[in-house]
Computed example of a mutant assay.
Amino acid sequence: MSDDESYELLGFDNVLLPVGDLGEAVGFYERAGFTVGFRLDEAGIAQLKVGGETPGLLLRQEEALGHRPPPWPSPRVWLEVPDARAAARTLREAGVETIDAPFSVATGWTVEIADPWGNVVGLTDYCKRPELGRRP
């Protein structure tokens, strides 16, 4: 690519997660504490809010996609939370299973959940490196 054809990455738009049933997926993520930004059943999509940002997690219905139990090799999307260990307790109280107990990472703690179609979402904090987080 020449200099006049280059592009600049400005940030994330939406992260798309394929799901087999839009209603079931929205219910799962609502139990996990996510808020629906919009839902268009006729298009087979629903957007989940992530903080105050416009982009979010976009659930996209894929008719032939069946349930798939963990564990499996999969891309993971991690979202920042103030306290991952508290998030894990809240998830369990809501009946949402975590893949592992919260585990230590270089910046803090992380807990992961998997939806019924194998999408893995991690909730991670920056308690060990608060200067790197959104709320130092």
Rank of each mutant, 00 (worst) to 15 (best):
P102C: 12
P82D: 08
G44Y: 00
A84M: 07
R92M: 01
G95I: 03
G37L: 07
R85D: 05
V77E: 11
V81T: 06
L58R: 14
E80M: 12
T54W: 12
A101E: 14
A87E: 07
R60D: 10
E53N: 12
E80V: 14
P69C: 06
R92V: 00
L79Y: 09
R89M: 02
G108F: 07
E80H: 14
L57G: 10
A106G: 09
R68G: 12
A43D: 06
F38S: 11
G66W: 09
V50M: 06
R89H: 03
G56V: 12
R68P: 05
Q61F: 03
K49R: 11
T110F: 00
V77T: 15
A64P: 02
L79M: 12
D41F: 05
T110V: 13
G37P: 05
V81W: 00
A106C: 01
G108T: 05
P82C: 03
G56E: 04
T54C: 05
E97I: 00
W72I: 09
R92T: 02
P102T: 11
D83A: 04
V81Y: 00
V50L: 11
R39C: 14
A87T: 06
G56R: 11
P75S: 15
V50F: 05
A94E: 03
V36F: 10
R60V: 11
S74N: 14
L48Y: 09
G52P: 08
V77Y: 06
V36H: 11
K49T: 01
T110C: 13
R89E: 09
A87V: 02
V77D: 12
P55R: 11
A46Y: 06
P70M: 07
L91V: 02
P70Q: 07
W109A: 10
A84W: 01
L40D: 14
G108P: 07
E62S: 07
L65Q: 07
A84N: 08
P75F: 15
A43F: 05
A94W: 04
V105S: 05
S104V: 10
E93T: 00
A106F: 08
P75M: 13
R39L: 14
A86P: 00
P70H: 08
T98A: 09
L79S: 10
A88W: 02
V36R: 11
T90E: 08
V81S: 01
R89F: 01
T54E: 14
E42M: 07
